[in-house]
Design a protein around this nucleic acid. Structure first.
Lengths: 215, 215
DNA sequence: TGATGTGAAGCGGTTCACAGCC
DNA sequence: GGCTGTGAACCGCTTCACATCA
C-alpha cells in the first residue's frame, strides 16, 4: 500500500519500532516476526504489520522481517538518513538543558544555535553552542541550515516567536510553552505541555483510588 | 452525568479549559458560553459542553458558565485545591532544569527533592532543593510527603527507578526516559518521549511537502 | 431567545481473523 | 507450517443536531 495519509499516531509508533529494532540489532538478532516484537515490547502484532504495510511490503511471509533491512527502511521513512539542525529559542533553564539533551546527540539531531532576547545572554555559550539575538534568527537559521526549532520561552512570547521562525521558513517546531498556538497548516507543530501532563496526574491522584473495583 | 470512566483525553482538555478560564478571569469576564470559549481558543463547543457535563451541570441555559465558579470546579476536579510535592529522579541536565521549571511553581506543584545515584552530587543543592541518594527514596518521600515523581534518568535505569518509587507507594509518575515502561495499573504513568516527538517532526520534513494539493 | 446537556450519527484508529504467499 | 498483508468488525472519541430549560 502506498502512503496516502499517515496519522501522527502511526509515525510515533514508527519511531518506537525503530527503537525496538535497534535493541534487537544490538543483540545480534537477524530476523524477527511481528508477534515476537509485540510480545517483547508490549505492542499489538496486527498493528505493527499494518503500520509497516503503509510504507511498503517489508516482510517475508513465513519468516518475518529482516532486522537490519527494516531498520534502514525506518530510518529512511523517518527522515533520519540526513542530519537535522536544531535551534532552541529561549536560553533559560529548559532551553539550556535541552541543548545538550542526550536524545539530540544520540540520533541525527544536533543543536546548532540558541536564541534569546535578553541582551546579557547574547554571545555567551552553552557548551559549544552560541546564544544569538532572536532578532537575527532568519539570518543565522539560513547560515546554519536550521530545519527544526524548539520553543522554550514563556507562554506570552510563544506565538510571536512561532511566527518569527515560520516566517523565516521553518517547517517543524516543537513547543514547550503552555499556550495554544496557531500555525500554518504547512508547518508541523508539536506541543509538549508539561502543565497539562502534571494536572492530568493530579486528576488521577484526586480520584477515589478505586483500589479493587473497576480498573 | 456522574463520572464513570473519564478518558485521559478529557482530563487533558479539562486542564486546557482551566487555562482558558484563567485568561478570561484575568480580563474580568464574568460569564462565558461554550461557543465563546470555542471560538476564542479554537476548540469545539459541543466537546466543551460534553466534557464539563461529565462532571456536573455547571452551566446555565441561556446564559453560559460563570467563569469564577467554573474555575473553582475545575481546580477541584483536577485536584489542584491541594498542594502536590514533586520529587525528580536524576539530577542531570534535564532533572535540574525541571527543578525550577516555571510550570511547577505556577500551579500547585512544588519540587521538594532531587535524587541521584552519583555520590558526588548527593548533598548538593539546586536552588533550594537538595539532592538525595536514590537509595533513601522511600524514607525521604515519606518525610516530605512526595506524591508525584518525575523520572529524568537514562533509559536503561528507568524501569528499575520506576519500580523503586512505586514500591515506595508513589501513584503518579511522569517519565522522560525514552523507554517502554511496565507499571501497575493502579499507578498513573505519563511518558513524554522527546525522541519520538523529534522523529515525528523529522518524518514530516521528509515528506514531499504537498504544498498545494491535498490536506 | 439563547445556551446547555445529550442521544445519535459520524469518523478514525485498533483489533480480529483469515486469505495469500514463502 | 509460519507469518505477512489486509478487509471487516469493533470500539471509542468527536461532532452534530435538537429537545430542554432559564
Amino acid at each position: 500500500m502506498k502512503s496516502d495519509k499517515i496519522s501522527e499516531l502511526t509515525t510515533n509508533r514508527m519511531s518506537i519500532y525503530l527503537r525496538c529494532l535497534n535493541e534487537l540489532a544490538d543483540e545480534g538478532i537477524r530476523t524477527v516476526s511481528s508477534e515476537k516484537i509485540a510480545k517483547r515490547f508490549h505492542l499489538n502484532s496486527a498493528q505493527i504489520r499494518k503500520d509497516l504495510a503503509y510504507f511498503g511490503e517489508f516482510g517475508v511471509r513465513g519468516v518475518g522481517y529482516y532486522v537490519e533491512e527494516l531498520r534502514t527502511h525506518l530510518r529512511k521513512i523517518l527522515g533520519l538518513n540526513k542530519e537535522h539542525c536544531v535551534a532552541i529559542i529561549g536560553a533559560g533553564r529548559l532551553g539550556t538543558a535541552l541543548t545538550d539533551y542526550y536524545g539530540f546527540s544520540q540520533t541525527n539531531f544536533s543543536v546548532a544555535a540558541l536564541f534569546d532576547a535578553d541582551q546579557s545572554k547574547i554571545g555567551q555559550k552553552v557548551g559549544e553552542v552560541e546564544i544569538f539575538d532572536i532578532k537575527d534568527f532568519a539570518e543565522v537559521a539560513e547560515r546554519d541550515k536550521i530545519d527544526v526549532v524548539v520553543i522554550a520561552v514563556p507562554a506570552e512570547f510563544a506565538q510571536s516567536v512561532l511566527e518569527q521562525v515560520t516566517n523565516a521558513g521553518i517547517k517543524a517546531v516543537m513547543n514547550f510553552a503552555p499556550s495554544p498556538l496557531k500555525v500554518d497548516e504547512n508547518v508541523k507543530l508539536k506541543t509538549i505541555d508539561l502543565t497539562t501532563s502534571l494536572e492530568s496526574l493530579s486528576y488521577f491522584l484526586a480520584q477515589p483510588a478505586a483500589k479493587n473495583g473497576r480498573k
